[in-house]
Design a binder for these strands. Structure first.
Lengths: 217, 217
DNA sequence: CGTACTATTGAGTCCGTTCAAACGGGGTGG
DNA sequence: CCACCCCGTTTGAACGGACTCAATAGTACG
């Protein structure tokens, strides 16, 4: 893999890295920071459909689709490297197993999308927020960026609201309730988990959809 | 492809074909009927995260993930055939281009998931319903199962509600309003489009995410 | 020390839910 | 052939979660 990846580049927070509809002949690997895939609505509202953390391929699906149906924005200062589709094509031709591994990571993306759909469709604000915080706890844990009782999360409440299909105002009230119920506190860029079992119960969270046993690390 | 696919089988309506967590060593192709991927909640509510139509691979992602994080249910009488993962592995090894094509179809699934997330997160019931009906219009059109002004859709209102994160009661009211606004009528298993442009406007629908120019048909 | 975000809180409104009941059509058994 | 029943649809009324609008605190930074 290393052979096909170009040197890393810095991306300042709040930069839109990729715009909707843009044709792409390369895929980008996120090595540091948080990014989000989003779509903006007519009325100015934004829905983030996925959060990416260190180690994620941002737009590997463009390897087969050659363009992208949504924007990608850096939510914090980030570091990225890219690999051209041509290089990936060579690489996967030579190492079919690696190709399936990359394919798998895009399938993991889809699994997370499905979990978010369930949240957005059937959970209320509290449970939905709890679910996202549980997911990030596990995902960041896999890459050594979370402890048992919490993790850094340098986002603002608006970012979370845009992930969760809520308004910023309501996001604030939900976070207050999670705090008051002594489940979890999100404050100054950190998630502090008070009661992991309780949080997971409230979220109806089961990590099966993250396929942890198969995560290539 | 034909060489690796086993003979078709009938699946009666309302059968759960695959249960959550089930290990899989084969993938299923849907040749007739409508199926849905779903997750059931503690309280008995169900969220359908994707609808599948004729020609879709139901669980191609299990080729790389080897199990499945959600159930699959037949919403109508269906016909399916399956291909073992071993056979697919051989096939894609021999024809790398075909492998990328299959990879692409899973990426299309993810793109549809993202579009649904946007709907569930940021559109109200009316617009969300309109969006689903637009999506199906296009997708069924690609396989020759829709006309300009409508298409058969043998679902009940509860099914739509489960796709859209609504209750059956509210689904009914939304459908009434779509009818009264002379946008679209869903009745006795058929979607009749009165005003396609108006419907798409209400849904804020753009078919870009379906990558029609790349659809392998 | 101002300026611009970000977070927080209150009051009123609305979309969607819950609970409940009635309606309609198609199948089935007497 | 009709009575009945089941399933799906439709409608009403009351409730509640989330939104809108608006104002006030913090907080970071130049």
């Amino acid at each position: 893999m290393r052979a096909v990846v170009e040197p890393p580049q810095r991306v300042p927070a709040r930069t839109v890295l990729i715009r909707e509809g843009e044709p792409l002949n390369r895929s980008t690997l996120l090595s540091e920071g948080l990014m989000g895939r989003f779509k903006d609505m007519r009325d100015g509202e934004r829905q983030i459909s996925q959060l990416h953390i260190s180690g994620d391929f941002l737009d590997l699906h463009s390897f087969t689709l050659k363009s992208i149906d949504h924007g990608v924005v850096a939510l914090t200062d980030c570091q990225t490297s890219w690999a051209s589709h041509a290089a990936l094509e060579e690489l996967t031709a030579e190492h079919p197993h690696l190709g399936r591994l990359l394919w798998m990571t895009t399938n993991l993306d889809a699994a997370m999308h499905r979990a978010w759909e369930v949240s957005l469709g059937r959970r209320d604000g509290l449970s939905r927020t709890a679910h996202l915080l549980c997911e990030l706890h596990v995902r960041l844990g896999v890459v050594g960026m979370a402890e048992e009782d919490g993790y850094p999360l340098p986002l603002i409440q608006v970012d979370l609201a845009e992930c969760l299909g809520l308004t910023a105002v309501h996001m604030n009230r939900v976070l207050r309730e999670l705090r008051e119920r002594r489940l979890v506190t999100f404050r100054s860029g950190r998630v502090q988990i008070h009661d992991l079992a309780g949080l997971r119960w409230a979220a109806e969270f089961t990590p099966g959809y993250l396929f942890l046993d198969k995560k290539p690390r």
